[in-house]
Design a protein around this nucleic acid. Sequence first.
DNA 1: CAGTGGTCTAGACCACCCG
DNA 2: GGGTGGTCTAGACCACTGT
Lengths: 233, 233
Amino acid sequence: MESKQRLIAKDLLAKIKSGQYRPGDLLPGEVQLTELYGTSRETVRKALRHLVDLGLIQKVRGRGSVVLNLDRYKFPISGLTSFKELNASQGLNAETKVLVLEERPSPEYFMTAELTSEPATFIRRLRIINGEPDVVDEDFILKSVVPEIPLGEAANSLYRYFEDDLGLDISYATKLVTFEKAPQHVAKLLQVASVAVVRSMVYLQDTRLFQLTTSYHRPDKFEFSDFARRQKL
Amino acid sequence: MESKQRLIAKDLLAKIKSGQYRPGDLLPGEVQLTELYGTSRETVRKALRHLVDLGLIQKVRGRGSVVLNLDRYKFPISGLTSFKELNASQGLNAETKVLVLEERPSPEYFMTAELTSEPATFIRRLRIINGEPDVVDEDFILKSVVPEIPLGEAANSLYRYFEDDLGLDISYATKLVTFEKAPQHVAKLLQVASVAVVRSMVYLQDTRLFQLTTSYHRPDKFEFSDFARRQKL
DNA sequence: CAGTGGTCTAGACCACCCG
DNA sequence: GGGTGGTCTAGACCACTGT
């Protein structure tokens, strides 16, 4: 059961993607959308809110909802997007090698969190883009949430597996980007001395932590893009 | 005129900050908040939405609104936070030196945007933290939005000046983080060969671009933190 | 089961922008 | 002035969680 607000948001998104509404254009007014979709105005507004959250439109009082530029749309590295989704959306020729998949307790310290070690599945994967090793991903997937991970899924998209097959509701994450000297095994794999490191803690909708990831990138290939709204309160 | 939803959000924020509600706690239910603040439920929900956007709470169906961990709260480097606000919130001993303030047309290429050069004010500032030069900021402030910038304000917080004095409504930004060889003048100032670079394009509420910033950081001191929600549509 | 958040409605008044 | 988005209301029904 898709909610009306989601259906409307999806429809508008599709129309923006297809170029029916172009950057700089105004969407139809909220009242007009009300008639178009046969819902109340608050529902239309909730749909638009989703597009605002995506950074797709900007609402301007007295003018309307402006479609924003989608250049950045090609780099949704921010948000919470998995590697597979990323390169699908960007048409990169990519390949994933699973180097390790084993049981290993999660590390105690990770970012600033107060974490106690927990049983987890450890996965180390090498991402090869256009024939070049560019990224080493190291994941701890907590067994309390996912007791078992089929080897085949690790080579594929873990997110697809978690969401579609297991029905997990992945909701939010904290990320920390730094530049560091590469650990020996990473230096060897990527053939560089320094790396860009992205550490993430990923949570489910019910606030359970379920994934810790450290992602090592070749610094010359690394780009992290972000769309941010100023938070005033 | 503060809206009810903002007042409620602020009040809850204050109570969270003060420790009245702690991480892991549940906020009062929406109906209860309704009575507490004497508003309709939708208004309460809009207030909660702000807190969700801030990454302060997570709503869980059937359970309630859970207060999230605030470790990351100390690092609102993501979002859209100015340097001054940052070190105020973190108690760093920081100092800003204005190296250049002059008229200079904005660069044509910046990130991926289609930009034509425009008249702008160029500001180069050196940020010194605990006696150590850590960051070089280079800003282009478009003259179409801010014709003139007093020298004194540049040493202070530009954002405070723009928002409080000029009444500008700074709304959103795109950022790109990379790791690069330092330009000569930056290498000299920071005494490093490589730097973390953050390029931002900042927009007003009415979608006008008004600021282009390139920020060079000593890589060993650099940290970029991000709170992201998974965008499903 | 009671309590929670998620969705939706059909009004209303206001602040703002633009021609 | 006419159109836009921002706020707010007082209901309603549903889906989910916990005990």
